[in-house]
Nucleic acid binder design. Structure first.
Length: 559
RNA sequence: UGUCCGAUGGUGUAACUGGCAACACGUCUGACUCUGGAUCAGAAGAGUCCAGGUUCGAGUCCUGGUCGGACAACCA
């Protein structure tokens, strides 16, 4: 990179931060946080947020906390906090012990609630949930004030303390802020601060039966942690006045909330609710199904943290709604794996080739490059013999003019081995399916020999029939057939756009060296794509997931 | 009928904050190649939602529209 180049442009959040740095706001501190709710698994959209928050902290020599927004015991679970921590670490970020929970602040939050009551800014409301929602009005029609709105401070305090003491059943009372039922912003119409939930919390156990709402907990948690920039997604933009109101009214340190547009990816869904529906409805094998955009799914699929971080950077940060082309994600992983994945040859759909003029029983060890992109990777040995398997797709008896591969009378090179010529096609007498192709080889054309310098249109991958081992290969395609899975006809939902062919399981013929692979080893199957060893692998049977295919310009002319 | 936000090639993001629209992905050529990959070279593709205005000059500023999104869980 040329240092005289223009400085890389900043995204709008970095501009805000640099402005703050310039004016000395926050004493030059930059402190962010990633605040997941432990009620689901992280997905690629969260990865964008994680990279943003931890990335900003790193860039500006600041800190980024991990904070679980665990204010609703009825949907949250320890299983999720564990998976979330694992995913963030896997992605390559660390919070250095600053692992916090909104529930750590329940007492402080409670004390501030009493303060709000005492200064006349909060009251206990006995209305039923339906009544509250009814009286809230609509975005275009103002709400009505609760009959309990003007309860005396002493009564509010007493009632709130008794709520906390567990004297009242779920749903019977809530604590509300006293703001403005006529506000054009729905969130300012006396929002609920506390509700009664008699449920066991994964961290605080049974200490509490009243729990703070998101709006009441989030900003104050930011404040307690001295967060400088509280970065969240666009849907919280309308909440910002309320975020500010709490901080100003309670009168504590005031972080700045900044909203950005969440990530959307074509041909997939990002909604936690829908992801959960696919998992629970067994449309996929679990949260880590390799077709899912969850981090655990992508990891199992074979995506690397490097590729995801690269992707997150390429995607950018702005405020307008966006749909990123999955092709960019695929580009990201190819870019990474091309440089580091060892090559191997596998026939996914094998077709037998007999080299009729090659001595029976003879075996040669061919020398192959491990990775041509990495000179330090060295070479490997590949056994060659009279009977081989090639890819069925690489042979056509009656090919179109654009087809350069094997066909009767044509010569192709077997990578790292010999040039062969197709002489004869053997068919099954019943089905007429091609079962074998007979070829002859040119003994002078072995790689490295002078006879190998001949120009041949095509080079094929192959595997020795006698030496190869069977491997299970899982071929994934996009989970949805539509770019926007939510685009459905009346009465149907996103599941009607599920791709019935998103998973194909086949048995391929692989290099014998593949018998000692272990997850998460990654390879390039030459000419096919990148494959990652699945945890289902056993000593008897390696299992590979196709991460992504190689770019295929012939596939395009074919269609 | 409200409030808030947004609008730049097919997609995403830029434009030193008023100076003749750039980068990436994708697409298409060509070169090279023992991966129809990679690499290299190049091309097409937007005149910046619309209409006015300010200005020598506007994607950037002003006014008025249009379109899109968010907001009416005791979810986050």
């Amino acid at each position: 990179m040329n240092e005289t180049d223009k400085p890389a442009s900043l995204n709008f959040i970095e501009e805000i931060i640099e402005e703050h740095l310039k004016t000395g706001k926050n004493d030059g501190r930059v402190h962010t946080r990633f605040p997941p709710e432990p009620n689901g698994y992280l997905h690629i959209g969260h990865a964008k947020s994680i990279c943003l928050n931890f990335g900003l902290a790193k860039k500006y020599n600041g800190l980024c906390n991990l904070r679980f927004d665990d204010t609703n015991p009825s949907t949250e679970d320890i299983e999720y906090v564990d998976s979330i921590k694992e995913d963030i670490h896997w992605l390559g970020f660390d919070w250095a012990g600053r692992e916090y929970y909104a529930s750590d602040y329940f007492q402080q939050l409670y004390d501030w609630a009493e303060k709000l009551i005492m200064i006349g800014k909060a009251y206990v409301c006995d209305l039923a949930a339906e009544e509250i929602s009814e009286q809230r009005g609509t975005p275009t029609r103002p709400g009505k004030e609760s009959p309990y709105r003007n309860r005396p401070v002493e009564e509010n305090l007493d009632l709130f303390r008794r709520m906390k003491a567990g004297e009242f059943p779920d749903g019977s009372k809530v604590l509300r802020a006293k703001i403005d039922m006529a506000s054009p912003n729905m969130h300012m119409r006396d929002p609920i601060l506390y509700r009664i939930i008699h449920e066991h919390h994964h961290r605080t156990g049974d200490n509490w039966c009243i729990y703070p709402m998101y709006d009441y907990a989030h900003g104050q948690s930011d404040s307690i942690e001295r967060i400088t920039h509280s970065i969240c997604t666009l849907e919280f933009e309308v909440h910002r006045p309320l975020y500010n109101w709490f901080l100003d009214t309670i009168d504590i340190y005031h972080p700045q909330q900044i909203e950005f547009a969440r990530l959307n990816l074509s041909y997939t869904i990002m909604s936690k609710r829908k992801l959960l529906e696919l998992v629970e409805g067994k449309y996929v094998s679990g949260w880590d199904d390799p077709r899912l955009p969850t981090l655990s799914g992508l990891r199992r699929r074979g995506y690397t943290p490097e590729a995801i971080r690269f992707f997150a950077e390429k995607v950018g940060v702005a405020k307008r709604d966006n749909v990123i082309d999955v092709a960019l994600l695929e580009f990201s992983i190819r870019e990474d794996l091309n440089k580091r994945a060892p090559r191997t040859m596998v026939a996914l759909n094998p077709l037998k080739v007999v080299i009729t003029n090659y001595p029976e029983g003879k075996t040669e060890e061919m020398e192959a490059v491990v990775n041509p992109e990495d000179p330090s990777s060295g070479t490997r040995k590949v056994p060659f013999s009279r009977e081989l398997f090639i890819e069925r797709e690489d042979f056509m008896e009656d090919p179109p003019k654009q087809f350069f591969r094997l066909f009767p009378g044509n010569e192709v090179r077997l990578k790292y081995a010999y040039i062969i010529k197709c002489d004869k096609v053997i068919r099954d007498t019943g089905t007429a399916e091609v079962t074998e192709v007979h070829c002859t080889y040119d003994p002078e054309s072995r790689s490295g020999m002078s006879g190998s310098n001949r120009k041949v249109k095509s080079t094929l991958h192959w595997i020795s029939a006698r030496h190869c081992i069977p491997v299970e290969v899982r071929l994934f395609d996009r989970l949805f057939i539509k770019e926007n899975p939510d685009e459905v006809e009346e009465g149907k939902d996103f599941k009607s756009n599920l791709n019935p062919d998103s998973l194909k399981v086949i048995t391929g013929c692989a290099d014998p060296a593949m018998d000692e692979v272990k997850p998460p080893d990654k390879f390039q199957f030459e000419r096919l794509g990148y494959f990652s060893v699945d945890p289902d692998t056993t000593a008897e049977k390696p299992v590979f997931n196709r991460v992504v295919s190689l770019k295929d310009s012939y596939g395009k002319v074919k269609n």
